[in-house]
Nucleic acid binder design. Structure first.
Length: 567
RNA sequence: UGGGGUGUCGUCAAGUGGUAAGACACGGGCCUUUGGAGCCCGCAUUCGGAGGUUCGAAUCCUCCCACCCCAGCCA
């Protein structure tokens, strides 16, 4: 789907599942799950996990559940559960009727906990949080057993029941698994499995005041849903022995946890904490600010679901911590948009051109191709008249070597229109700024070809002044200046690394009239400039606002840079 | 200096004893009414390092080095 006709790359998780299926494990069944905690918006890193989980399930004819890991009511909100569903769906995946919540399992989970107590494998600890920490030991020293570790089953049962009934304050007691305080793996040193929280839950309301911890709830939820392959990120590798322990002790269905490296992207931050900080501090316009690496930000920026999917396929899956180059993401959108986006002409920084030998009272409708990559997208017509706007960058009074655009005395082609020659440069007398170009056109070159076979080096885009629709256009650039914004200099905050030029707003850009009724979300290629989409938040009927998704590759910029380098 | 991981091109990443895929980036060329797109070519004598086993090692063994994760009643 993401890469039609292209075989997906091999990676270790695919190999494991492939082997399990061949061996008939789980009856050849493949069942995964995407388990976000609803405490923030999804970002491109989650997209990797979503594509992996839903993609693998689809690939092997299996299923993938959407399950909210909502075991901490103090951090979770419905706003997030709504946005997460919207984002997953937008990415092109579907969980049918398999929308679950860890909170759906609070009752069975509680019953499992009671069973652990009955089996003498869990106990109520009444140490304070600080004491528990002290008893845990350190990385190099074993922990010490709690004095409450050997309470009787009856006492534990009674205490746990009273915890549930709300007889205690937060922190007074916790339920712990009885494993091994001397384990070199800290996760096995009698992990807390239930804690008291007098907080209403977004789904269960005030039905509970004890909530299960991640380690306890996650694996058991996987088991309850009969998940075959439980994919998670590297930091949970240390938790796998515990994941396995709970399931083994209970003798219930036992999914296999497999860990992979999370995605890092150059020039961006991916931690929910930092993204939240950018939102709360007003450094960006919100979770869906087009500069954000969130799914909603990318969507508003104009990224397509297909481009994100192909990106996720391209980056691969491995256990090595790595940072993917932002250029790969950009390549993925350009590839998709090149195929599907209609071309259109727009001028970002206008320079007026008067075509002296073109009658003032004339307007012509010239035919333009909508997408050279896809003839089925047809043609449209663009109006041409005596006064037009061209890009200021497309004129140089003193053209450097290899500059093929307009300059005094030079002839260029106006795309789909005529050859024009620059005859005169009009400047502001006080500032010296070029304010207008006086040109002449060759009537024989209508449509862009010269009957005498004359060639021209450059073709530039333009918009008829009289017919132009003035639009606001937003140019976005990377949010951070550093390849790795997590690498903050001593004593500085990561926000000091923000790119002050990540947003440039251009008002009153002349765009061709066909764009007047462009609908929110519509994507276009502004010829020679880049891909743009109509902002879904700030556009009004007849007044589209455009967001630049990504610029086109600019080989002239490259040449110019190389020339500058040579001095 | 406890435990768990990872080290293959600038960045990702295949490869699992038979003599280093692919992608992005980069460089060069062709083509072009987008300096876009497309096409072609180039781009790791070498796989963190050092030894060893073998006819043969990125793949096996030994030692070493570097980096990441773990001491939440977060997930």
């Amino acid at each position: 789907m993401a890469n039609p006709g292209k075989a997906p790359g091999q990676h270790f998780i695919r190999s494991i599942i492939d082997e399990d299926v061949r061996n008939g494990k789980n009856g050849g069944r493949v069942h995964t799950r995407f388990p976000p905690e609803p405490n923030g918006y999804l970002h491109i890193g989650h997209a990797k996990s979503i594509c992996l989980n839903f993609g693998l399930a689809r690939e092997f004819g299996g299923l993938c559940n959407l399950r909210f890991d909502d075991t901490n009511p103090t951090k979770e909100e419905v706003e997030y559960v709504d946005s997460i569903q919207e984002d997953v769906r937008w990415l092109g995946f579907d969980w049918d009727d398999r929308l679950f919540y860890a909170s759906d399992y609070f009752e069975p989970l509680h019953a499992y906990a009671v069973q652990f107590i009955r089996d003498g494998k869990a106990y109520v600890d009444s140490l304070s949080p600080g004491e528990i920490r002290e008893h845990r030991g350190t990385l190099t020293e074993p922990g010490r057993e709690s004095p409450f570790r050997n309470r009787s089953v009856e006492e534990n049962l009674d205490l746990f029941e009273r915890m549930r009934r709300g007889e205690f304050k937060e922190g007074e007691h916790v339920l712990r698994a009885k494993i091994d305080m001397a384990s070199p793996n800290l996760n096995m040193r009698d992990p807390v499995i239930y804690r008291i929280m007098h907080a209403p839950h977004h789904r269960t309301g005030d039905a509970w005041c004890v909530y299960p911890m991640y380690d306890f709830a996650h694996g058991l939820s996987d088991s309850l849903e009969e998940i075959t392959h439980s994919l998670c990120t590297l930091e949970f590798e240390d938790h796998r022995p515990l994941y396995d322990w709970f399931l083994e002790q209970l003798g219930v269905f036992h999914p296999r946890q497999i860990e992979f490296a999370r995605l890092n992207l150059s020039y961006t931050v991916m931690s929910k904490r930092k993204l939240l900080e950018l939102v709360r501090g007003g450094y960006v316009g919100g979770w869906d600010d087009p500069r954000m690496p969130t799914i909603s930000g990318l969507r508003r920026r104009g990224y397509t679901p297909a481009s994100i999917r192909s990106f996720c396929e391209r980056i691969g899956v491995a256990k090595k911590e790595s940072t993917v180059d932002l250029s790969l993401l950009e390549y993925s959108v350009r590839e998709d948009l090149n195929r599907i986006a209609p071309r259109v002409m727009a001028v970002l920084r206008p320079l007026k051109v008067v075509i002296e030998n073109y009658p003032d009272d004339r307007t012509e409708e010239l035919e333009a191709v909508n997408n050279p990559e896809d003839p089925s997208m047809g043609t449209r017509t663009v109006p041409f008249s005596r006064e037009i706007y061209i890009e200021r960058d497309d004129f140089r009074e003193d053209p450097p070597r290899k500059f093929f655009r307009l300059a005094p005395g030079r002839e260029v082609r106006l795309r789909y229109a005529y050859f024009i020659t620059c005859r005169e440069v009009v400047k502001d007398e006080t500032t010296g700024e070029v304010t207008e170009l006086r040109c002449t056109y060759d009537p024989e070159t209508r449509g862009g070809d010269a009957p005498d076979g004359r060639k021209v080096k450059g073709t530039i885009h333009w918009v008829s002044a009289r017919h132009a629709v003035e639009s606001e256009v937003r140019l976005y650039d990377r949010l951070f200046n550093r390849p790795n914004p997590a690498d903050v200099p001593e004593g500085e905050d990561f926000k000091s690394l923000l790119n002050p030029d990540s947003l440039e707003t251009l008002s009153a850009c002349p765009v061709e009239p066909s764009l007047k009724e462009a609908a929110p979300g519509d994507r276009y290629q502004f010829e020679r400039l880049g891909y743009f989409c109509v902002d879904t938040r700030d556009s009004e009927a007849g007044r589209p606002v455009f967001n630049r998704t990504v610029p086109l590759r600019d080989s002239w910029a490259r040449i110019e840079k190389a020339q500058a380098g040579k001095g």
